[in-house]
Design a protein around this nucleic acid. Sequence first.
RNA 1: AGGGGCGUCGCCAAGCCGGUAAGGCACAGGACUUUGACUCCUGCAUUCGUCGGUUCGAAUCCGGCCGCCCCUG
Length: 354
Amino acid sequence: MTKALIAMSGGVDSSVAAYLTLEKGFECIGATMRLVENDTACLKTAKTCCSLEDVEDARSVAYRLGIPFYVFDFTPEFKKYVIDRFVCAYECGATPNPCIECNRYMKFQVLLRRAIELGCDYLVTGHYARIENRDGRYYLLKARDPGKDQSYVLYMLTLNQLSHMLFPLGDLLKSETRQIAEKLGFVNARKRDSQDICFVPDGDYAAFIESYTQKKYPIGKFVDEQGNELGEHKGFIRYTIGQRKGLNISSSKPLYVKKKDAESNTVVLAENNRLYSTGLEVTDFNWIAFDTPPDKLRASVKIRYSQTEQPATIFATGEKTVRIEFDNSVRAISPGQSAVIYDGEYVLGGGTII
RNA sequence: AGGGGCGUCGCCAAGCCGGUAAGGCACAGGACUUUGACUCCUGCAUUCGUCGGUUCGAAUCCGGCCGCCCCUG
């Protein structure tokens, strides 16, 4: 019998994914990754993918399905691959996406390796995305539910990893997932979708970084594009490109963060129309749809999770680097975020913006 | 000291031939969201430097005082 390890977060999606995999006749093992020491973040409750409460929800579902359930302690790996990189990126003035890193390192490397060690053929997650095997090659596609599509956070999957992954929810609508959970009486059927950074449940990531590093990030200057001082900022890790709220600077027009300079500890503010640009460079690019990408191709691109795709021309500038030139200028390109390129339903590849 | 100007929410700023306080920024709360942001919705001056006067009624007219700015000495 084919064996699958189900990554169960305790949420509805992965719970239903487990059920569907079992239905298909796989031998299933449920597993939750323990990623954070309970005192690292103030994880008393709610909204996180790894609180004790969530582990119990996952355990409850596994029990109901009659499958074995494990908790893997990956706190050291999570610290190294996700938290430290997250903090480091902010210290360098970038805007990281920890969910991407968690997928890349925790789910698709550490957990997948563990699954294979346990004799599993597949790792199953509750992501909304689809995998297609055509002509002996694996492709990553968007989910059927366009409102829930999560292919953006999966662009780093290699062909080898894809051959061991299953996304049972790829053809479901979110509402259908909830219905199934409801019908099966899962405890989490009506649980709220997760949001915020899981290791920063209250959303105050800057406070998290300060308490984690025990550093205090010095105040600095807000300046306009001409270099005129506009005010004082509260430590540049608190700002990201395109940000408007929380600047505490009043003016006749809304002001946004245009640029951050870690070197001089300066944050440049400008009006919205100054935030648009037409091109960007991407590094650590992972091509899914090509072994050798064409030098140049037309595609549509997302430069943040929730953004409609933008038409662009892609230039493969190196093994893992790409230059993207948009047809129309795009707002607030943020280094550290991921750029993912699509051709229709297909994810061509993606990488990190520099 | 004399001449001129100004004083409206934390900031900017309408209103000023009287009729019962626009708007923007900031801020707060909510929605959206497996990242940070953006966006959207809601809230946000019983009060117009102050004290009097005129009037049915004043932020708007008049006078005193206080404060600030500019010019002249």
